[in-house]
Design a binder for these strands. Structure first.
Lengths: 227, 227
DNA sequence: ACTAAAAACTAACCAATAGTAAGTTTTATG
DNA sequence: CATAAAACTTACTATTGGTTAGTTTTTAGT
C-alpha cells in the first residue's frame, strides 16, 4: 500500500531541489544539471518527470505558494473571531520560516517566469484571488462591502510589495517589522477605537503565539517537506 | 563636435534593444543574439560594449529606473505646492507611457536579476531611497516626522506592489485605477477634511493635465529615447 | 599630414546548457 | 510468469554566454 506514486514523490523531490537551486544561484544560474545534482540524480531524470524547464519552474512556483496557503489554513484552525482570522492571514504571510531573505529572493527570482508562463500565471491569479477572498471574509465584519473591497485589495498589494522589497534589498526584513507595517495600515483603514485596538492587539498576540507552536513545530515542517 | 562618444551611443542603443528583448521574450529567453539582432549588430558587438550579460542587464535596469525618475523631475517643474508635488510623484509613477503591461512585465522580469547582481542592487536601493525621500519631503507638510516616515514607506511599498501585480497579471491595470488606489491610501493616512480633500483633488487634476503635455509630448519621449 | 595607440568591430572558437531520441532496467498487473 | 508501462540512462544536437586573436577605424600627438 503505497500512498504516493514514485512519480509524485520524484516530482516533489525535484521541485524541492529546484527551489533550493533558485535560492542558491538565482533563476538565471539555475540549470537542470544543478537541480539534478542537488536531488542526487542525473539531468535526464529531471527531464523525464518534467517535460521542460518551464514545467519544473511552474511546479516550484506552485509548491512555494502551497506552503504559504497551508500556513494560513493551519492558523485558521485556532482562530475564533474575525480579528483572529484577519491576523492569522497576516501572520502566516510573514512567519519566519517562510518570510526570510532566502525565500523572498527565490520568490522574486521566480516571478520573472510568470509573464511568459501560462501555468505560473494561473497559480499567481489563484493565489491573489484566494488571499483577497480570505481578507474580504474578515473585513466584512469591520467595514461596508465597497470599503472592504478597497482595503482587501490594498492589503493584498501591500503584502506583495513587502515581499518584493524583502527579496530585493540586501538587508533582511524582520517578520515583526513586516507585520507592524500591515498593522499600521489596518489601524488607518479599519475602525480603530480603544476597544478594537485592544482586540486587535490581543488577536495578534494570540495568533503569534500559536504560530510559534503550529508553524514552528517539527511536525508541520515535515508535513510541508513531504509534498 | 560630437556630444557623445560612440561607446555611450552604442551602449544606449544596446540597452534599449535588450529592454525590447526582455519585453518580447522575458528575461530567461533573452539571448545576446536576439539583443544583437534587434540592435542590428552581431553578438560580438554586444559583448564588446558590455563585458557580460549581467552588465548589460544592469544597464537596462538602470535605464528604466532613470526614465521613471526623470518623469518625476519633469513634473516637479510645474508643481508648486506640497499637494502638487506629492501628486507629481504619484502620477509620474503611473503615467501611461511608463506604466503599461509591457513595461511592467519587463520590470518583473528584470528584478529577478537584482538578488544576485550587485550593480542592480545598488540601483534598486538608490531608487527606493530617492522615492522615499521625495515622499518624505512632501509628507512632512501634512504629518509629524515619525508618522510621515511610516506613510512614506507604506506608499513606496504600495507603488512597488501595484507595479508587480500589473506585471504578473494578464489583465492590464489602468493608470487611473492605480492612481486611485494610492489616493485611497492617502485619504486614510493623511489629514483629510473637506478643505484638504478639495486641495488634493485639484492638485491631482492639475498634475494629470500637465503630465499629458509634459510627459506625453514627443519632445520628452525623444529625450527619453536618446540615452 | 603622418603615425602610433586606442577603440570599434569581426570571426572563429569553446564549454555549458536545454532538450531529444533511443535504448535498458525496474515495476506493476493480468 | 509474461507483458506493458513507467523509471531511468546514455549519447547526441543546437543554442547559448563568453573568450581570444585578429582586423579595421578613429583619435591624438607631433
Amino acid at each position: 500500500m503505497r500512498s504516493k506514486s514514485i512519480r509524485s514523490i520524484r516530482r516533489a523531490e525535484l521541485s524541492r531541489a529546484a527551489f533550493e537551486a533558485v535560492v542558491q544561484f538565482g533563476l538565471r544560474r539555475t540549470t537542470l544539471d544543478k537541480v539534478g545534482a542537488i536531488a542526487g540524480v542525473s539531468k535526464g531524470v529531471v527531464l523525464h518527470h518534467f517535460k521542460e524547464k518551464s514545467a519544473l519552474l511552474e511546479a516550484v512556483f506552485r509548491r512555494s505558494n502551497t506552503l504559504l496557503s497551508e500556513s494560513v489554513i493551519e492558523l485558521y484552525r485556532y482562530a475564533e473571531t474575525p480579528y483572529e482570522r484577519l491576523w492569522a492571514i497576516i501572520i502566516a504571510n510573514f512567519f519566519e520560516t517562510i518570510f526570510n531573505r532566502r525565500v523572498c529572493q527565490a520568490w522574486v527570482s521566480l516571478i520573472s517566469e510568470v509573464p511568459h508562463n501560462e501555468g505560473c500565471q494561473r497559480v499567481q491569479i489563484a493565489n491573489n484571488e484566494r488571499i483577497r477572498s480570505n481578507l474580504m471574509h474578515e473585513l466584512r465584519h469591520f467595514l461596508p462591502e465597497s470599503e472592504a473591497q478597497k482595503v482587501a485589495r490594498h492589503l493584498g498589494v501591500q503584502i506583495d510589495g513587502i515581499w518584493v522589497r524583502a527579496g530585493l534589498l540586501p538587508t533582511p526584513v524582520e517578520p515583526d517589522v513586516a507585520v507592524s507595517e500591515i498593522e499600521f495600515a489596518i489601524s488607518k483603514m479599519l475602525p480603530f477605537d480603544e476597544i478594537s485596538a485592544v482586540k486587535h492587539k490581543n488577536a495578534r498576540k494570540k495568533i503569534e503565539q500559536i504560530a510559534q507552536i503550529a508553524l514552528g513545530s517539527k511536525a508541520f515542517k515535515d508535513k510541508a517537506m513531504q509534498e
